[in-house]
Design a protein around this nucleic acid. Structure first.
Lengths: 133, 133
DNA sequence: TTCTGTGCAAATCTTTTGCATGGCA
DNA sequence: TGCCATGCAAAAGATTTGCACAGAA
């Protein structure tokens, strides 16, 4: 993936250590909530403020650097990438990205042109589904 | 559709005027937020409390009478029905239910058995897309 | 040097909780 | 009558805002 600095330089946002840390965290976790980002960054960066996370998440969303998703109806964020669906394991909570074309009929794009799709599949992942409770 | 009273009698919840009003409102609006439900019911039922709406929405969700969805990443609720996707018009905000089988490949259920799906399509509806700005 | 970003504290939602009273079964 | 539900007020959580200072370009 592109480095985080480039993502910011291509947007209208200045590069700051806080923003780099947020992007790095999102990249590492894949999908994270405000609180998860905050808790994790605070360890490396104790002076960071929750308000800064909120402001930056909103700014990054505005600039289309990241996108918001709703896992179990709670807001999470991820670095923007090709449109994809999310598989969420109901047991272990693991989240996997799935390419849309594996799931959605082709005709859908003709039927609903210029549309954005959001798809979540809540099921049991392979590791959880092997007979072990 | 089934009358609201039956929906409650089949659950573990007592029938109350407030609950009937919430279900009626959801049925009428199709999809509504807590605040929308509250504002609307308050007109007919001025003494109702926001806390009552919250408690009942949670109870009804728990009993599987209603389900939660996220439109534009904001929580909304609808009376439980056959699983379906949601089409949301980006211009007028109208929400339409779409049967899953019109959209999703059959194989998906083999690939992800016992899974629940949530699909949102954000596009332009027919009335908004006819050339009129 | 300029302008935007940060961090703090306060303000503003949003949602939940506890408790006394009211109402369904 | 016995419980559960309601409504109020307070508490708790989540998010936004204002402002002085710091830091990127």
């Amino acid at each position: 993936m592109k480095n985080y600095r480039n993502l910011l330089e291509e947007s209208n946002l200045k590069t700051t250590p806080q923003r780099l840390a947020i992007l790095k965290e999102l990249d590492k976790q894949g999908h994270a909530s405000i609180e998860e980002i905050y808790e994790s960054i605070k360890e490396m960066f104790p002076s960071i403020s929750l308000a800064t996370i909120y402001k930056n998440i909103n700014a990054l969303k505005e600039e289309d650097v990241i996108s918001e998703i709703c896992l179990h109806h709670k807001p999470k964020f991820e670095i923007k990438k090709e449109p994809h669906a999310h598989f969420v394991c109901k047991k272990c909570g693991k989240v996997e990205d799935i390419p849309f074309n594996e799931i959605i009929n082709e005709e859908i794009d003709k039927k609903y042109p210029n549309s954005q799709k959001e798809l979540y599949i809540y099921g049991i992942c392979k590791s959880c589904g092997n007979g072990n409770s």
